[in-house]
């Protein structure tokens, strides 16, 4: 009982800290792609931790399994959405990266920097 509560608090607090970092990064980073790094990818970790914490808190067989399936869908769907946002915003020239030290992708598309 007590051990379960310790795990619950650990997962919830870690997830909350990561969510706060996500929001700060969304404001502070300079261009679209670095913001995607902060927004989507750290958010995946925080959402995963929060769902696992809730599954531990509920501790009912069917309900916990359902919540774990939801966290699995997070892990599958989040990279795909991130990838498609980044790729389409580069290809349609909605927003090109502001800072870039090396850019191999513009050679692949066939245009100058």
């Amino acid at each position: 009982m007590v051990i379960r509560e310790i795990f619950f608090y650990f997962f919830m607090i870690t997830g909350g800290i990561f969510a706060a970092i996500t929001v700060i990064g969304l404001i502070r980073f300079p261009d679209v792609y670095t913001r995607i790094h902060a927004a989507a990818v750290v958010l995946t970790i925080s959402a995963f931790f929060l769902t696992i914490g809730i599954a531990i808190y509920v501790w009912d067989f069917y309900l916990s399994l359902k919540i774990l399936l939801i966290s699995l869908f997070f892990l599958i769907s989040n990279p795909m959405a991130t990838h498609s946002i980044a790729r389409s915003s580069y290809r349609k020239k909605i927003a090109l990266p502001a800072i870039r030290t090396i850019d191999a992708y513009s050679d692949f598309i066939g245009e100058d920097q």
Binding site: I36, H37, V41, I45, L75, T82, H83, R87, Y90
Partner: peptide
Amino acid sequence: TLTPGTLTL
């Protein structure tokens, strides 16, 4: 993509 810091374009 899931590993933070890298993003497949």
